[in-house]
Design a protein around this nucleic acid. Structure first.
Length: 965
RNA sequence: GCCCAGAUGGCGGAAUUGGUAGACGCGCCAGACUCAAAAUCUGGUAUUCGCAAGGAUGUGCAGGUUCGAUUCCUGUUCUGGGCACCA
């Protein structure tokens, strides 16, 4: 009986389906455990081997926890709204719902083959009205709530209105300090009662957690549409290469900034990697600084003052120039007649620069405005510049530049020849800036002689008492843009009447996405919904929600997926609580993971759930990179006509080819022999010959050797006429590790591997590749080794000639030692998500049991339970063959017994000054004195001592011995 | 540019707390079985000097701390991820 994986896997997958083996109940006496994967976007290209990496890891862990006696929730679903489906619809006229459904079918078929223990009865799709009804419902809750800074939580707007009626906005000032009504940022109860409805609504909009405002988008006039950042390349649209400029549009936002402090605080209570916490902390970017007002001296005199934000007020005497964000409208009032043209040119240059480009630009640009700021303490005149490196959205959009202490300021000063004031003495070398806080201040008037760190408070006190500024906490994080000018997303359930947004009633939800004939954008950059008369007649909002809306709360829906009356019952969310283990990629570090934490906190504030952090522990899975293969096409520079003939040269020959006359002659005759088309070719035509690399499909390259026949049939015979210049009779491809993607022809479909080696082999190989957290390139070759391991395991039970070989005898001590050491290792490895070493622990066990010729049921049975999370099909089959009647899925995880693992002695490495020279077997309970005498008596040690007396003998029990000479 | 991570044989990786660097697997080499091949099994495989015994070197690079560093510290290079409308 041989290992027929195809038959075994089919049999058990059917059996598990029939018995609902993976159905999870919300009603169980067992302790709960919630394992969640970041659900996939069902793209048209299907799964490649990179996708299942995290799913396999979580699947192993879920199965492991089940064997340990937990009631494990392990669901799966689809993040089904998104831009690619819409783009596909525009290009092919296929409704996104249709293409998405097809893609999901394809994903499901692929996932099923790998043998996951998902409870599919809980499957959800964010594009399903039954699901997005609740996304809309939560949005409306956000719309109807504000963040009470006194209680630090979300509360209904009614509380706010009551406070306004009683005491104006003195208790709850505008969250956006720039906001003013009637030129004032405060109003009284009397003011409030005097305002009309429109004014009330305008004010309330300033407080809502989901609010409408204005923001800039990438606007492409030629395409008549708003573009995503990754559709814009170097200021031009990816499709068509049309110019893209920034345009202000009405947009919805989520006031996530109000949660900034709580998002920071929550990080202390969850198990995310330090790197992840750091990324989120940096993204939130809380800084303690000072706002300072500077008087202005300019030709025009409209603006008298402007405000900067700095985290280093101690450097105020080192200010040599000011920089203001070019897009701020008040910049205009600064411009002198002489600088008008230059400033105008510069502003138009910045207008089509993306924020990213502006920040990462190495080239220093800027323009003097012609105006000066007056230093508040020494009345110096400081030139005011505009430059793209200052962004309008952060702080006040203006900075005081201190070149001796800030690298960017320093480079700017150097570039524009602005004299640099040194306030930090020897800490400033003149070669680069030094951001230290430890210097003693010089050239700093009343701060002279003070340590910078201590000077900060002194300056702030001076500034505050002089009434020219105040302490200010700032956040780099901005409110989250929550609308898209797209079709394929959740409609926003808001009706506009006379410019006032009215929420729809809960009973009217879901507001379903209407069918459209065309997915083209609406007028003035509005979304496609603006083209539907029935929609606009009802004055419905034409924007839709962004991709992250549905994924911000999905972990809750899995707990109670059928619930028609609530997004999730409190009973269900109290039972399942937090996600105990969340697995997904770091690419979601600051997007999804922050938004979903915020939504969760919001629902917690309103009492709908009982936990304020959604994920207790997060494990980041690394990317599986593609291992691309290249062929190299001959490109004739001086004789273009020959370039039309597709000739490819083997990789190593591209490296050695130098283009010498001799080589040209040789290559010339080789080409002539290859094809008659080259009969006219002369060596001179080969001058400047180039080899242009072309991605070729990895699926017809064995290692590095190209399957020439397959290549000729590729892409409907586009390269059928290809000729090849070989090396040693083969065509060898070049390679490069890069992102796995269809366009690079380096994707590998898990289905094909499952077909060839089985799901169990595939699962174990994905884990065997390396640590889950690490990115690594895919290489199909190594899968054979894992497959061999499973066959070897099989042979412990059945041999081809003899059939069944397992026996009912009692295990020896040696066999027990192997088993119990394996239990210990596998349990530890699985527990710390080190699945790659887990797999090798199994390999070692099977190798050792093979060496011992152990076929004892007692040992093998326990080994199977250990293996079941990794390779469920073969484990279940062998378990069944051993005569077990119930499924291995519900077996009890074996315990490692210490008595089989006790050692009495150890072979110690003996090192001299840290270099290992010999080994000695010594009893484990030996004392320092005993060890010293044993060591010094040893012959090899004597030889290395060369007659010297050791200065010291370091003995670390159960580790090593080191002799210091 | 900013933030985060990583770098170990020909390749993927192991070394869990600072204690024998290279577990396990791939590949490669040799051998067994076979008419042959596949499959399977056995042995070898960091580099370098040496017939060997044995020695020297070695964890991206340059320093440092330590009896001892892949592990800790400082600097640096390269690669990957993110940077707010891809998901």
């Amino acid at each position: 009986m041989e290992y027929n994986f195809q038959q075994i896997e089919r049999k058990w997958q059917e059996e598990w389906k029939k018995t609902n083996a993976y159905k999870v109940s919300n009603d169980s006496k067992a302790p709960k455990y919630y394992v969640l994967d970041m659900f996939p976007y069902p793209s048209g290209s299907g799964l490649h081997v990179g996708h299942p990496l995290g799913y396999i890891a979580s699947d192993i862990f879920a199965r492991y926890k089940r064997l340990k006696g937990y009631n494990v929730l392990h669901p799966m679903g689809y993040d089904a709204f998104g831009l690619p489906a819409e783009q596909y619809a525009i290009e092919h006229g296929i409704h996104p719902a249709v293409s998405t459904e097809n893609n999901i079918q394809n994903f499901r078929a692929q996932l099923d083959k790998i043998g996951f223990c998902f409870d599919w009865s809980r499957e959800l799709r964010t594009s399903d009205p039954g699901y997005y009804r609740w996304t809309q419902w939560i949005f409306l809750k956000l719309f109807k709530c504000f963040f009470n800074r006194v209680t630090q939580k979300a509360e209904p707007l009614e509380t706010l209105v009551a406070s306004f009626e009683k005491e104006g906005n003195s208790k709850f000032p505008y969250p956006n300090p720039q906001f003013k009504i009637n030129n004032s940022s405060v109003f009284t109860a009397l003011d409030w009662s005097g305002f009309d409805e429109r004014m009330h609504q305008n004010i309330l909009m300033e407080y809502r957690l989901a609010y409408c405002g204005y923001g800039e988008v990438n606007w492409c006039e030629a395409l008549g549409t708003v573009l995503a950042n990754d559709e814009v390349i170097g200021g031009l649209s990816e499709r068509g290469g049309h110019p893209v400029v920034k345009k202000k549009l009405r947009q919805w936002y989520l006031r996530i900034t109000e949660y900034a402090d709580r998002l920071l605080e929550g990080l202390e209570r969850i198990e995310f990697s330090e790197a992840m916490k750091e990324m989120q902390t940096n993204w939130i970017g809380k800084s303690y600084g000072t706002e300072i007002d500077f008087e202005i001296k300019s030709e025009k005199s409209e603006t008298k003052k402007f405000r900067i934000y700095t985290t280093r007020p101690d450097t105020i005497f080192g200010v040599d120039f000011m920089v203001v964000a070019p897009e701020l409208s008040w910049v205009e009032s600064l411009i002198s007649a002489g600088q008008a043209k230059a400033v105008e040119d510069y502003i138009s240059y910045v207008r089509n620069r993306s924020e990213r480009e502006r920040q990462s630009e190495k080239k220093i640009t800027g323009c003097f405005t012609g105006a000066y700021a007056i230093h508040p303490f020494d009345q110096r005149l400081i030139p005011i510049w505009i430059s793209e490196y200052v962004l309008a959205g952060y702080g006040t959009g203006a900075i005081m530049a201190v070149p001796c202490g800030d690298e960017r300021d320093f480079k700017f000063a150097r570039h524009f020849d602005i004299p640099i004031t040194n306030i930090i003495g020897p800490h400033f070398t003149g070669l680069d800036a030094n951001p230290t806080k430890e210097a003693i201040l010089e050239n700093s008037s009343f701060l002279d002689g003070m340590l910078m760190r201590d000077a900060i408070a002194v300056v702030i006190d001076r500034i505050e008492s002089a009434g020219i500024g105040k302490r200010k906490v700032n956040y780099k994080m901005r409110d989250a843009a929550f609308s898209r000018q797209r079709y394929w997303g959740e409609p926003i359930p808001v009706i506009w009447k006379d410019g006032i947004a009215h929420p729809m009633k809960d009973s009217e939800l879901p507001l379903e996405l209407p069918h459209v004939e065309s997915y083209k954008p609406g007028p003035e950059g509005e979304g496609p919904l603006a083209n539907i008369p029935e929609w606009t007649h009802r004055h419905l909002e034409t924007n839709t929600m962004p991709g992250y809306a549905g994924s911000s709360w999905y972990f809750l829906r899995y707990m109670d997926p059928e619930n028609q009356g609530e997004f999730c019952s409190r009973k269900a969310s109290d039972y399942w609580g937090q996600v105990d283990l969340y697995i997904g990629g770091t690419e979601h570090a600051v997007g999804h993971l922050l938004y979903s934490r915020m939504w969760n906190k919001f629902l917690f504030d309103l009492g709908y759930i009982g936990h304020d952090e959604p994920y207790r522990k997060l494990v980041n899975q690394g990317m599986i990179q593609g291992n691309s293969r290249f062929v190299y096409r001959l490109h004739f520079k001086t004789a273009e006509e020959f370039s039309k003939i597709p000739v490819f040269i083997s990789y190593n020959r591209t490296l050695t080819y130098s283009g010498s006359l001799g080589e040209r002659k040789e290559l010339c005759s080789e080409l002539k022999a290859l094809s008659d088309q080259f009969s006219e070719l002369v060596p001179a035509d080969l001058e400047g010959l180039e080899f242009s690399p072309l991605h070729t499909d990895v699926n017809f390259v064995d290692g590095f050797e190209l399957n020439i026949n397959a290549f000729r049939q590729w892409r409907n015979g586009e390269y059928a006429a290809s000729q090849f210049l070989l090396e040693e009779g083969k065509y060898i491809c070049g390679s490069e590790v890069e992102k796995m993607s269809k366009s690079k022809f380096n994707t590998v479909n898990p289905n094909e591997l499952v077909l060839k080696y089985g799901a169990d082999t595939f699962r174990m190989y994905e884990m065997f590749l390396g640590p889950v957290e690490q990115s690594k390139p895919w290489d199909t070759k190594g899968i054979e080794g894992v497959h061999r391991f499973l066959k070897k395991l099989w042979r412990l039970f059945f041999e081809e000639a003899k059939g069944k070989v397992w026996v009912d005898e009692k295990a020896t001590d040696a066999e027990n030692k192997v088993l119990h050491r394996t239990i210990k290792r596998v349990e530890e490895d699985t527990g710390r998500f080190s699945f790659n070493t887990g797999v090798s622990s199994f390999m070692i066990a099977v190798n050792e049991l093979g060496d011992l010729q152990c076929h004892k049921k007692e040992v093998l049975e326990k080994l199977l339970i250990l293996l079941a999370p990794y390779a469920p099909h073969i484990a279940e089959e062998l378990w069944y063959q051993l005569g077990n009647l119930s499924s291995i899925l519900n077996a009890a995880y074996p315990k490692s017994e210490k008595k089989f693992l006790v050692e009495t002695s150890k072979t110690y490495p003996v090192a001299f000054n840290g270099k290992t020279r010999t080994e000695l077997n010594i009893l484990l309970d030996a004392s320092q004195e005993q060890v010293e005498s044993i060591v010094l008596a040893d012959k090899a040690v004597q030889k290395w001592l060369e007659g010297k007396t050791p200065k010291r003998i370091v003995y670390v029990k159960n580790r090593m011995i080191n002799i210091v000479l």
